[in-house]
Design a protein around this nucleic acid. Structure first.
Lengths: 148, 148
DNA sequence: CTTGAAAGTCGCTCCGG
DNA sequence: CCGGAGCGACTTTCAAG
């Protein structure tokens, strides 16, 4: 994982339809060498898959909310229970007063309420605290060049 | 946007390298018809771009945190200020006691602390409250078939 | 919407250096 | 790592039903 690899990842994040010839040009390598590097990035799990960036609003999911889930029991094995709710896009176990933080997308706030209700069906869930997003400034992929 | 379109989007979310012939087979259409539908989904902004799914940990960004940002002023025009911090992956204006919620990825908690310090450099920011993620259950794209 | 065909591009793999 | 050569597959567009 040198800086050339990071640049390749950055280019693919912007547009994964680039040809290997174009990738090579951008980093000063031949198409074959660029191809080999990308192949290794995929094999090594850095690049998981080629996918598509979808506008949630265009799919009718214009409401975004983050929900803090309180629990009265250990939630470390509840991943599938959260995954079973299709409106939940992310679920994280967190440090702090709450136990789990989930990111939810729905069409309306009524639907959001419905998701909250379903959260209570998950064993151990004792409470929820929803925060509705008014405006999303941006959502972007990780920066491969981030100093971090 | 009928159900066939949603299925096409779902297939492309899983693997955007699928050929139009394979897409057509999956939904019972010819390759040409599938191609035309996907073209329209792109033109209509439903599909924004073809990209790549990257493992943040493989990029050295193993620490994930959500930060509630309190403010003493209107933050509606501060999108660029947040975007200028590369470790910030998402920034949302929220309803509730805090003003902005940001999602941050760094290599270490020390780096996270550094990001928090930079947040205070943004005009209007009066406080932060960071929640560190202990384990991510899952992160996935929106479900195009979600009843929403 | 279908089938079929054409032309161009690219993926992918091989080689020799 | 480079350059080039080669084959197969895919994209993209078109016509005609």
């Amino acid at each position: 994982m040198d800086d050339t690899d990071r640049t390749l990842v950055g280019l693919l994040l912007q547009d994964a339809t680039r040809s290997y010839a174009a990738l090579g040009d951008a980093v000063g390598l031949s198409a074959g060498a660029a191809h080999e590097r990308v192949r290794k990035l995929r094999a090594g799990g850095v690049i998981r898959r080629t996918t598509v960036d979808v506008d949630p609003a265009a799919l009718g999911q214009g409401v975004l909310a983050f929900v803090l889930v309180d629990s009265s029991a250990w939630m470390g094995d509840s991943a599938e229970a959260f995954a079973a709710v299709p409106e939940i896009q992310e679920a994280h176990v967190i440090a702090g007063s709450a136990s789990v933080l989930v990111k939810v997308r729905t069409s309306t706030t009524e639907r959001l309420q419905d998701v909250l209700r379903r959260l209570y069906d998950i064993p151990g869930v004792s409470g929820t605290q929803a925060t509705v997003v008014l405006e999303t400034f941006f959502e972007r992929p990780p920066d491969p060049h981030s100093p971090a």
